[in-house]
Every structure is written in structure tokens, then in C-alpha cells.
Nucleic acid binder design. Structure first.
Length: 864
RNA sequence: GCGAGAGUGGCGGAACUGGCAGACGCGCUGGAUUUAGGAUCCAGUGGGGUGACCCGUGGGGGUUCGAAUCCCCCCUCUCGUACCA
């Protein structure tokens, strides 16, 4: 490559040059089964290519993994580092509805833009493995996995109350509904029964929970998944309805409180409600159930909402003491958890207590609160005993014995639980039970832009999946993408596409018109990267054995539960089918922290968009009112006009400075505020690096030569190699960069500058700022890319100092600093310290009682 | 309410298994260079006295020769979650 050598650091020239070089020479193409090098699979959460383009949050994680990959390559690893597109999804379809543009066209355009932007950062992806979830060659295998799920009985159709969003014309998963509004668009969501594909993720609840323990994930994320799965242990208990054949089964985590059960509550959707309601109460019960169905989830879940409910007129028998208790219905009991019915223990459950207070139901106390615990909680024990207050803590059981042979008086809560459960089992009245909050995964969407199901509804009523040879089922072309407004998907308008004739049996049927949710494609993409162009199978088993599991997975915490739980579920199913060799897909997970924008608010805490803010001297004022504003970090948003565009930053400062800045801001996992001004510090640093090596004529500076380093320079070089190496290993990039700054500050002031030290430094810098590093490497006379150069080694001996400054304290106060041999032991240090006149003055003749000497650090003398 | 995480200069943040708090960078101050601005370079920069002393890691207690770091209590913020029986 012959070209003009500019004398000044010019990122706009060198960055495109090296990006083109890496891409055209396939520098980062990775080979499978390298026998010489250990494998390393480093994965970024692939983006949804939105029309807005990349935001500054994307490159944060991508830069971190890129540094790690480049570092590991130089350390001799065979690194798999791919990128692709999670490209099905609502926005492209919404755009199609609004403009008539085919979602495919929108998606392709957005992908091209994302690819351009991502490549402008110089990331070392193996672009030969790029994948796209909307490519039929990709989604045929998503459909193939669905067939495996179906055949294993893990996919089923069910009529379930779903979150129906009239504005979007589709149903949404529970996770896509926030406070009764759609996550996208914020439209109201109502409940409506509908036939839906469900995936039996609940079959895997226990394993999804248990296997979290072996994962190197942030504790917080694991905890969120545990909470989401929501395992609890307790008992199921049958209550016989008085004058009726029916039993009502309840689930409780507190079987110890059975003696305190003074009424029961059924969910308004409970199937037995109609049957047990007394004639007098039936109308009221029916009315209440209808009202409850109409109330949106948002209102139903609203905090501190007054409890409502209706008496059914029926009674049930408490199995432990044969007393009859009234049966109520109330929407504070959910049909979707447990059995949809509870025994109410107002004396020892806050919700039941509140309900009992509202409706004047009896409260009976059967646990005497633990005195210490009650005192700490500020609870009046006498009030609890009188049934005037609720106590849900520990204590000992009272009033809990019956003629039926159960006596748990005096027992602790835990012992009483065990004894009662045991008794129930012996009597055939109940048994120990485990419950999970996790529900089956609603897997259908009434949308166009998603994977079609490989499913046919045959005329004879059978519902079956297609043969694998018939894949992919491609999306039909449509003129109109609008949802029908009913539960029907846009695919219901697909004409010929709908009719299906079985090539083997000749049976005819109609294709499934629902499509899969966006999560489907991202549930297995990490496996397709292993073998992205395989036409015969989703991946080669040998390649899977070689590369899996993912060694490092980096992405935003917003996927803490959904994506990561769904992908783990699919992976376990594939594992059970013998299709993958590991039981978990992602061994180590790191969440990059969100990057916040700069925002402003006035004295009344009102937010002021950035285009209304003006800087006057050191203060920020409202452009219109002149009011002084306070600056603070806030999530980037269109409304606050504080979104930073990566293209503009690269154009002005270059990709290397951008990369360095994002890594220098702070720890990867931390939430950090973006301040464009601060990038200048990193630009300055790169300029310094440039001038350290390049003279005014553009050639290598005359100061760079073969003259040996002095002792201090050598120490600094080796200390820098050590620090950068260790920090890259642990992803502590901010401190690695500051060490490199220290190096440059020292060496750029020195002359001559040892050439091999300069070359070692360029290698250290190269994972962080690869463009400038390649350029400098080339100008130093190397013809090959430094991407595959060996990482510099350090020598611990060269870091050691002969003389170190030791702090001498008297009574813990610093009194003197003195040079001592670096290898002096505690005894020598003590001797040297006590000889020091400053120290003697501080001791002031008092007897020395104790001396603490820490080699290499300090001496502390206790006197008097 | 519950669960998780975090509180260090004007700001972003450093500080190994307890061992000189504030590395590195931004900003700011002074100086050099410059017609000016920008860029660059040099010096300074936690607070208070301004001597060699004192105070300082959200607040209060404790352990220790020694605490940002360990223990107890409290406060604040961020994220997640929400009647899960």
C-alpha cells in the first residue's frame, strides 16, 4: 500500500484505510478446529437494526468484546467473534403499515446502515459469518427447532386469556405489557381468550433454576431469573364444600396457619364459582366476575387499591378442625397462580387481613409473635393476640389443636409446617407441593414480519407440523400489512399461500397464519454462527462440540430475564435431544452499563430539552425564560433531545478516540454519563502517541532509536505490559488506558526513545485503538497487520525496585518517608526506621511498645 | 413492600488479600507561545489554617497499630419486581 504519509494524526484518513484492509483481506476470518490454539467464543448480543441507527450504547459492549478478542488473538487464542441481525420485529411492520414499504426493504436498508456504522468502529468481526434472522436460510432452522419442540410435546395450542392490544391488532406476551400498556407504543391492553401456541417452558423451571448456580453471571441477573421463575414450597390442601360434592383445592406456603383460616377466596375466573354460589348470591357473584374480566390488568394490579369481593353464599370445611368457613371471591386472588383459590388467614397474612377488615370477617390469632422479632418490627403483640393486628413473622403456634388428631401448639412456624403437611398427607387431605411463578411461554403473534409456523390445520381436524424437507415455509408476498383488527393475522389474507396439500398423503389443509415472536430467532443464533452456511443442518455437531459453550457473552441488562431465559430453555431442549453438547449456552455473562445523556431540569424539577438550554459562562440557562438550570445525567431520549449520534462523534474525533473514551469512562458494568467534551482527553492522548513516534515529516521520529532504556523506563515498560495484560483479562479497560497514558506521558518527554519499547507499546494499544496502531506499526516498517503479532511479555524482575520509598508512621500518623531496599524484611525496616532522626523526634523518648513493618509499604511505630 | 447494586474533589472515576485516599482524564487557575482564537507546552488544583498543624471516602457507632475497604444501626440514589397465597 503506497500512499502519502501525512505528518499529523489524521483519523479520517487512516481509519477507513485499515477498515478496508481488514475487510478485504479477511484478516479476522476464523478457522474451525485449529489444533494449535485454544478456542474462545466471544459473543455480543446482536442488535435489532432499527431505523434510528446505532446509539452510543451499542458500541460500548462491542468495543469491550473487540478489545478482548484482539487481545486474546495476540495471546494465541482461536477466537470466534461474529455479528448478525435480529431483524424480525414490530417497527419494520409498523412502518410498512404506515408507508406501504415492504418490511423486507426497510429491514435491508436498516441492516446496511447498521453494518456501515458497526464497521466504522473497526471491530474485528468475522464478517464471513454474518447472519440475519429474517433470511429464509436462517429461519428455516428456527422452524426446524419448532418442529423438534412440537414433536417433544413442548409446543401446544391452548385457549388462554391473552393480552390483546386493539391498537396494535395483536396479542402480546406478559413481558411485553408494562403496567397494562404495550411496551411498544404504550397502547392499552385488555384480556381476551384466544387459541395460541404455547411453549412448555414450565417443564424446565426446575432445571432453569438449578443450573443458574454453575454460571459465571452477575449475581443480580441470576437473582432476577430466580425471582422470575419464583419457586415456592408449601402444600396443596382440599377443602370440602358444605352441602356440595365439590372440593376446593388451595395452594399455601403456610400450612402451619390452617387453624387460622377463617374464610376462603376464589379467583373471579375460578371454574367452580358458578357451581358453588348459593341461589341468593349467584347474581352478585356473576356480576362481580364479569366486572373483574373487564378491568384491565393495570387497574387490577394497581398498588394500594381497595380490596373488593363478593360472598358466594357457600361454606367449606376447614380440614384440620371441621369448622365451616365462608367462601368469597375477589380479584386479589389470581387464577394463573397456584390453584386459583386460597385459604385466607387474616391473622397472619397482610392481604387477607386487609380483606377481612374491609368486609368484617373474623380474624383469629394462632401464632404468638417471637418477642424479639415483634419488638424489632415495632408490632404490638397484644394487638396481634387480640386479632387486631396482623403478624406474618415467626413465633410459636397457639390455638392449634383439634379433635381430628392434629396438635401443633408450641411448635415453631417451620416445625408446624412440617407436622401439618405430614398430617394432611396421612389423612389424604393434601400433600406437599411446589409452585412456580413462571408460566408457559405464549409463542404466537398475529403479525406479518415474523417466522411462519411450519404447521397445518388439516380438514379432518388434525393439526400437524410439516415434514422437515418442506422447510423453509417462506413468508408470502402481501399487498397490505395491516392487522385485520380481529385476532386474525395479516397472513390470513395470503390467498393461495394458505392452502396446503400434503405431498405424500394428498390431505389438504390450511396453514397456520400466526407467526413467531421476535425472541424466536435470538433463541439459537449463537449456534448458527458456528456453521452459518450449512444447507443441510442447522449446525455441524463437530463444530458445535468444538466451539460451545460461549465463553463470554456481553450485552445489556434489559435482556436479563426474557432473552436469556428463553435461550437457556431452547438450549436445554436441544441438549435433551442430543443436538448440543452443553447444558447451558452462555458460560460467562457481562452486562455493560447504560450510557446516559446529559440533561437539564429547572427548580421545579421539570425536564428541559437540550435544544432549549444555553451555556452562559459556567451556568446553564433556559433559552427562553433565562432560568438557571441544573445539569444531571438521564436516559437518552428523543424527547429530551440528548441522544448522541455515533456517526457525528466518529466524524469529529475518529473511531479510535470514541472507543477509548467509552472504555475510559468507567467500569464496563457501571452506568455512566456521556460527556462529549471528555473525548478530547482521549484525542490528546492519541495525538501524543502519534508524536511520540512520528516526526514533522511524517516519517518515524528521529528520537526513536536503538539506544537502551534506562532503569526507570524499563521498569515503566514492564509495569505497563503487566497492568494492561491483567486488566484486559478482567475487562478493566479504564485502568488499562490510564496506565498507557502514564507510559506515554513519560516516554514522549524522553529522548532517545527505545524502538522496541515503542513497538511493545503499540501492541498494547492495538486492541483499544486498532487503526492508529496498525498505521504506526506500518510506518515503523512492518508489512503485516499487527492483529496476529504476539502480545508482549513482561519480566517481573524488571518491575522490582532496588530502593523503595517507605512511609514511617508514629501512632498511625505519617512522620517520615525514607528509601529502603526493596527486599528489606520487617526486621531491617524496623531498624532503619528507628534510626531515622525525624522518627526519633516524633517518638520523643517514649518507650516503643510495638512496631508493625509491612515489607514494601510502611512501618508503624506505637510508642508511649 | 420485596430483591439486587451503588454512595469517594467542581465532574468521570483510581486505590492489590485492611497499609501514604484522590492514580488517569475532564474542568478550573497561573505562566510560555500566538495579532486573536484554537492547538501545544510548563506549573498548580480535596477542604481549612496557609509553618512542619487539623479535617476529610453518605451519617452514626464498633473492631484494629492502622478502615473508602471488615462488623452493627441509619439515610439517600439507581435498577428490577409487584396482591405469587
Amino acid at each position: 500500500m503506497a500512499e502519502e504519509k501525512s505528518a499529523a494524526y489524521a483519523p479520517a484518513e487512516i481509519e477507513p484505510k485499515w477498515q478496508a484492509y481488514w475487510l478485504h483481506n479477511h484478516v479476522f476470518r476464523v478457522r474451525d478446529f485449529d489444533p494449535e490454539r485454544p478456542k474462545l467464543y466471544v459473543l455480543d448480543m446482536f442488535p435489532y437494526p432499527s431505523g434510528a441507527g446505532l446509539h452510543v450504547g451499542h458500541p460500548e459492549g462491542y468495543t469491550a468484546t473487540d478489545i478482548y478478542c484482539r487481545f486474546k488473538r495476540m495471546r494465541g487464542c482461536n477466537v470466534l467473534h461474529p455479528m448478525g441481525w435480529d431483524a424480525f420485529g414490530l417497527p419494520a411492520e409498523q412502518h410498512a403499515i404506515e408507508t406501504g414499504t415492504h418490511p423486507r426493504a426497510t429491514t435491508e436498508r436498516n441492516i446496511a446502515n447498521f453494518r456501515r456504522q458497526i464497521q466504522s468502529f473497526g471491530f474485528s468481526y468475522d464478517w464471513d459469518r454474518e447472519i440475519n434472522t429474517t433470511d429464509p436460510e436462517y429461519y428455516r432452522w428456527t422452524q426446524w427447532i419448532f418442529i423438534q419442540l412440537f414433536k417433544k410435546g413442548l409446543a401446544y395450542l391452548d385457549e388462554v386469556p391473552v393480552n390483546w392490544c386493539p391498537a396494535l391488532g395483536t396479542v402480546l406476551a406478559n413481558e411485553e405489557v408494562i403496567n397494562g400498556l404495550s411496551e411498544r407504543g404504550g397502547h392499552p391492553v385488555v384480556r381476551k381468550p384466544m387459541k395460541q401456541w404455547m411453549l412448555r417452558i414450565t417443564d424446565y423451571a426446575e432445571r432453569l433454576l438449578a443450573d443458574l448456580d454453575g454460571l459465571d453471571w452477575p449475581e443480580g441477573i441470576k437473582e432476577m431469573q430466580r425471582n422470575w421463575i419464583g419457586k415456592s414450597t408449601g402444600a396443596e390442601v382440599d377443602f370440602q364444600v358444605v352441602d356440595c360434592e365439590e372440593n376446593i383445592r388451595v395452594y399455601t406456603t403456610r400450612p402451619d396457619t390452617l387453624f387460622g383460616a377463617t374464610y376462603m377466596v376464589l379467583s373471579p375466573e375460578h371454574p367452580l364459582l358458578e357451581r358453588i354460589a348459593s341461589p341468593e348470591q349467584r347474581a352478585a357473584v356473576r356480576n362481580y366476575a364479569q366486572q373483574a374480566a373487564k378491568i384491565s390488568d393495570f387497574d387490577r394490579m394497581e398498588l394500594n387499591r381497595r380490596k373488593t369481593g363478593v360472598f358466594t353464599g357457600a361454606y367449606a370445611v376447614n380440614p384440620v378442625n371441621r369448622e365451616s368457613v365462608p367462601i368469597w371471591t375477589s380479584d386479589y386472588v389470581m387464577m394463573t397462580y397456584g390453584t386459583g383459590a386460597i385459604m385466607a388467614v387474616p391473622g397472619h397474612d397482610e392481604r387477607d387481613f386487609e380483606f377481612a377488615q374491609t368486609f368484617g370477617l373474623p380474624v383469629s390469632c394462632i401464632i404468638e409473635p417471637d418477642p424479639g422479632e415483634a419488638a424489632r418490627a415495632g408490632v404490638d403483640t397484644a394487638a396481634v393476640l387480640a386479632g387486631e393486628a396482623c403478624w406474618s413473622g415467626g413465633g410459636s403456634l397457639i390455638n392449634s389443636a383439634s379433635e381430628q388428631g392434629l396438635d401443633i401448639n408450641g411448635l415453631s412456624v417451620d416445625d408446624a409446617k412440617r407436622r401439618t403437611t405430614c398430617w394432611l398427607e396421612q389423612q389424604g387431605l393434601g400433600q406437599a407441593a411446589v409452585n412456580y411463578k413462571l408460566r408457559d411461554w405464549l409463542f404466537s403473534r398475529q403479525r406479518y414480519w415474523g417466522e411462519p409456523f411450519p404447521v397445518v390445520y388439516f380438514e379432518d381436524g388434525e393439526i400437524d407440523v410439516l415434514d422437515e424437507s418442506e422447510l423453509p415455509v417462506t413468508l408470502p408476498e402481501l399487498a397490505d400489512f395491516k392487522p385485520s383488527g380481529t385476532a386474525e393475522s395479516p397472513l390470513a389474507k395470503a390467498g393461495d399461500w394458505l392452502s396446503y396439500r400434503d405431498p405424500r398423503t394428498g390431505r389438504v389443509g390450511r396453514r397456520e397464519t400466526h407467526t413467531m415472536p421476535q425472541w424466536a430467532g435470538s433463541c439459537w443464533y449463537y449456534l448458527r454462527y458456528l456453521d452459518p452456511r450449512n444447507h443441510d443442518r442447522p449446525w455441524d455437531p463437530e463444530k458445535e462440540k468444538y466451539w460451545m459453550p460461549v465463553d463470554l457473552y456481553v450485552g445489556g441488562a434489559e435482556h436479563a430475564v426474557l432473552h436469556l431465559l428463553y435461550a437457556r430453555f431452547w438450549h436445554k431442549v436441544l441438549y435433551d435431544l442430543g443436538l448440543v453438547s452443553t447444558s447451558e449456552p452462555f458460560q460467562k455473562l457481562v452486562n455493560q452499563g447504560m450510557i446516559l445523556g446529559v440533561s437539564y431540569r429547572d427548580r421545579q424539577q421539570r425536564l428541559v430539552p437540550n435544544d432549549l438550554v444555553e451555556r452562559r459562562d459556567t451556568e446553564f440557562v433556559h433559552r427562553e425564560t433565562g432560568e438557571i438550570l441544573e445539569e444531571f445525567p438521564a436516559k437518552m431520549s428523543k424527547s429530551l433531545k440528548n441522544v448522541v449520534n455515533p456517526d457525528e462523534i466518529i466524524a469529529k474525533h475518529g473511531a479510535d478516540a470514541f472507543r477509548l473514551y467509552e472504555m475510559f469512562m468507567g467500569p464496563l458494568e457501571a452506568v455512566k454519563p456521556w460527556r462529549t467534551k471528555d473525548i478530547e482527553g482521549l484525542t490528546r492522548f492519541l495525538n501524543k502517541v502519534w508524536r511520540m513516534l512520528i516526526g514533522r515529516d511524517g516519517a518515524v521520529s528521529e528520537a526513536v532509536g536503538e539506544a537502551p532504556m534506562n532503569r526507570d523506563q524499563e521498569r515503566l515498560l514492564h509495569a505497563t505490559i503487566k497492568k494492561v495484560t491483567e486488566d484486559c483479562e478482567t475487562l478493566d479497560f479504564n485502568t488499562a488506558i490510564s496506565q498507557m497514558m502514564i507510559f506515554v506521558n513519560e516516554f514522549s518527554a524522553a529522548e532517545p526513545r527505545n524502538r522496541s519499547a515503542m513497538e511493545a507499546f503499540i501492541k498494547l494499544l492495538s486492541p483499544f485503538a486498532p487503526h492508529i496502531a496498525e498505521e504506526l506499526w506500518q510506518r515503523l516498517g512492518h508489512s503485516q497487520s499487527l492483529a496476529w503479532e504476539a502480545w508482549p511479555e513482561y519480566d517481573e524482575e524488571k518491575i522490582k525496585q532496588e530502593q523503595v520509598e517507605i512511609l514511617v508512621q508514629v501512632q498511625g500518623r505519617p512522620k517520615s518517608r525514607m528509601m529502603m531496599p526493596g527486599d528489606a524484611d520487617a526486621g531491617q525496616m524496623q531498624e532503619l526506621a528507628l534510626r531515622n532522626p525525624e522518627v526519633q523526634a516524633a517518638i520523643d523518648g517514649r518507650p516503643v511498645r510495638k512496631v508493625i513493618a509491612v515489607p514494601g509499604r510502611l512501618v508503624n511505630i506505637v510508642a508511649g
